[in-house]
Nucleic acid binder design. Structure first.
Length: 605
DNA sequence: CCCGGAATGT
DNA sequence: ACATTCCGGG
């Protein structure tokens, strides 16, 4: 709001990738939507409303018309446009806000990840999925403020990921329409297409390089998760705030909640200072476009992150396997019918450590927590009820394909068998979606869904220095990231508190196995894999296109493809399988890593 | 309205 | 990949 007349604020500028996607240069629908949302001119047609990231298409046909104009598809209409939007559900870029007509919600985490993979979203909650409009000010973002205070001062600035915008922004580009009517408002900026290199952008890029990956979680976390824990208003009452902002309500719960120091691009330049965790340093070198596996760098990098990783990034699933970790039990807090659950779960962002102990002891049982995931929310997709079978997964090395997300099953799949992703047995798909949606969604969507205790955050260490890794993030992390909103408490939580095993717990995460060059994430996965194997055999599946994956898990043990990411499997069965040779896994992991690294992220927008 | 499958186009 | 176009079904 304070935006000076500017049009909307710069909101998810960060959501835009500086370089437009390689393949198709055309604007994507979600980008377009975002554009409309950020312009006041279109507020009569489409605007943020409701929860974070939620927007309502007030005039569907008009939006469709605009879209059609942009794409030069005169025949466009809302029906078609909405179909396109629906395709985003699986991609997790968007989801529908049920019960509200023409209302959808962006999953900004996804967008950020896609576009700025190097930014650590802070597991899950870092950025609320929805996005923060950037407060800073206008639609055109400013860069590094001349003075940090500039940026930081207003509380608003802090709360929103303004940092992203500053760092990332870009948009500005074209305007809503380029095709026909010249509605463009600010296209002048860079009509030049060259886009990113264009004036003004340079710095951004520079920033990109500098941006500290952890920035977000630390700071964001503070900002969002902090004090109120998930302080968002219950679904019931959503307050409307700034019309332009996706966040009607300030995400910032607490009072002064966030410490000032948080974000700001400027800060990013000086990583060490504001981050609680450690040293950070290695990042800078690594952040650049080139990322190296140099052991030293990696080590430093890992050190810098390990804590955060332990604290925040474990996938919820991971907790199952760590006996020492206290996992929020299914015991639901009696009262609070609301969703706040997530908050308690495990380490709410609060500084209090209470969360940690509130568990009585520990569960020595091997299978202590098995909570059930929510039931499949929608029933739609599995309607055909394919029985599960079909199977045959061929790839033993699913890992690599999975990682790439490329997974073209193409070759092997002969007859196109369209198998549903696991639906029956595990409701993962749905769950995923729901989870992603976030807590609000959970309730909204399903009514009485029982929220899984997301432990904390669940995510894997995302900070990946190299922008190219976007794909990894997407594939590997997105799910967790999205779904687990919870965030980690403050930075300094120590691993030990969490109970993470001492094995690696405290020291620098040097690989237990000896491979110390493996990124944390991978290491974790590895662990997960191992654990999972022990725990059960199967899971798989990745999330990307459900259709794409044609495999069925007939055989549980078969694919080890994704350890960490598979959409959650139903934990129901826990058969124990003898732990396979770790080495094998390791190598596979490495392969995967390699594959991932080589991937290119196709950005979005 | 909304949902996704299917075919088709870029 | 990402739509666009149709479309049957809820």
């Amino acid at each position: 709001m304070k935006t000076p007349g500017d049009t909307g604020f710069a909101f998810p500028d960060w959501a835009y990738k500086p370089e437009s996607s390689p393949g198709s240069r055309q604007i994507q629908l979600w980008c377009f939507i975002l554009e409309l949302l950020r312009k006041e001119e279109y507020h009569e047609v489409i605007a943020w409303q409701g929860d974070y990231g939620e927007f309502v298409i007030k005039d569907p046909e008009e939006v469709a018309r605009l879209w059609g104009a942009r794409k030069c598809k005169p025949q466009m209409n809302y029906d078609k446009l909405s179909r396109a939007l629906r395709y985003y559900y699986n991609k997790r870029i968007l989801h529908k806000t049920k019960g509200k007509r023409f209302t959808y919600k962006f999953n900004f985490n996804k967008l950020v990840l896609v576009n700025y993979p190097f930014i650590d979203m802070g597991s899950g909650r870092g950025v609320p999925q929805s996005a923060p409009p950037v407060p800073t000010g206008g639609s055109h973002f400013r860069f590094p403020p001349s003075t940090p205070s500039d940026v930081l001062s207003p509380s608003e600035d802090l709360r929103s990921p303004g940092m992203f915008s500053s760092v990332a922004r870009r948009l500005g580009r074209g305007s809503v329409s380029d095709c026909s009517d010249g509605t463009s408002t600010n296209s002048e900026l860079e009509e030049g297409v060259g886009g990113e290199d264009r004036g003004g952008v340079g710095p951004e890029r520079a920033f990109r390089g500098l941006l500290h990956p952890r920035l977000s979680h630390d700071s964001l976390f503070r900002a969002y998760g902090g004090p109120g824990g998930l302080g968002r208003p219950p679904p019931g009452h959503r307050v409307h705030g700034d019309p332009m902002s996706p966040f009607p309500v300030s995400p910032l719960p607490g009072p002064g909640g966030l410490l000032g120091p948080t974000l700001s691009p400027a800060l990013s330049m000086t990583p060490g200072s504001h981050l609680p965790y450690t040293p950070s340093p290695s990042l800078s070198p690594m952040l650049g476009s080139h990322f190296s596996f140099n052991p030293d760098d990696m080590k430093r990098y890992l050190q810098a992150h390990h804590q955060s990783v332990y604290n925040y990034h474990l996938s919820p699933r991971a907790f199952f396997h760590y006996p020492n970790i206290v996992v929020p039990q299914p015991h639901r807090p009696s009262a609070a019918p609301d969703k706040p659950m997530t908050a308690h779960h495990h380490a709410p962002p609060m500084p209090h450590s209470h969360s940690l102990h509130h568990h009585q002891g520990e569960e020595q049982h091997p299978s202590p927590f098995k909570f059930k995931l929510q039931p499949p929310p929608l029933g739609r997709k599995q309607r055909d009820g394919s029985t599960s079978s079909t199977g045959a997964s061929s790839s033993s090395l699913g890992s690599s394909y999975a990682a790439s997300g490329l997974l073209s099953n193409s070759s092997s799949v002969g007859p196109k068998i369209k198998v549903e992703p696991v639906s029956d047995v595990e409701s993962d798909e749905e769950v995923e979606v729901t989870d992603i949606s976030e807590e609000d969604e959970l309730l909204d969507d399903e009514g009485d869904v029982f929220t899984p205790p997301h432990p904390t955050n669940g995510t894997a260490p995302t900070a990946i220095p190299n922008g190219n890794l976007g794909a990894i993030i997407e594939d590997d992390l997105d799910e967790d990231v999205f779904k687990t909103p919870a965030a980690p408490p403050m930075g300094p939580l120590t691993p030990s508190l969490l109970g993470l095993k001492s094995e690696q717990g405290q020291g620098p995460p040097i690989s237990p196995g000896g491979t110390l060059c493996i990124p944390l994430k991978l290491r974790f996965k590895r662990r997960w894999s191992e654990d999972q194997k022990m725990e059960a055999g199967g899971e798989r599946d990745e999330a990307e296109d459900k259709k794409v994956r044609a495999e069925k898990q007939v055989e549980p043990a078969r694919r080890e493809s994704e350890n960490g990411e598979g959409p959650r499997r139903s934990l129901s069965l826990s058969l124990r399988v003898p732990p396979p040779p770790a080495q094998r896994r390791a190598s596979s992991e490495l392969q995967r890593a390699t594959a991932q690294l080589s991937l290119e992220s196709h950005g979005a927008c």
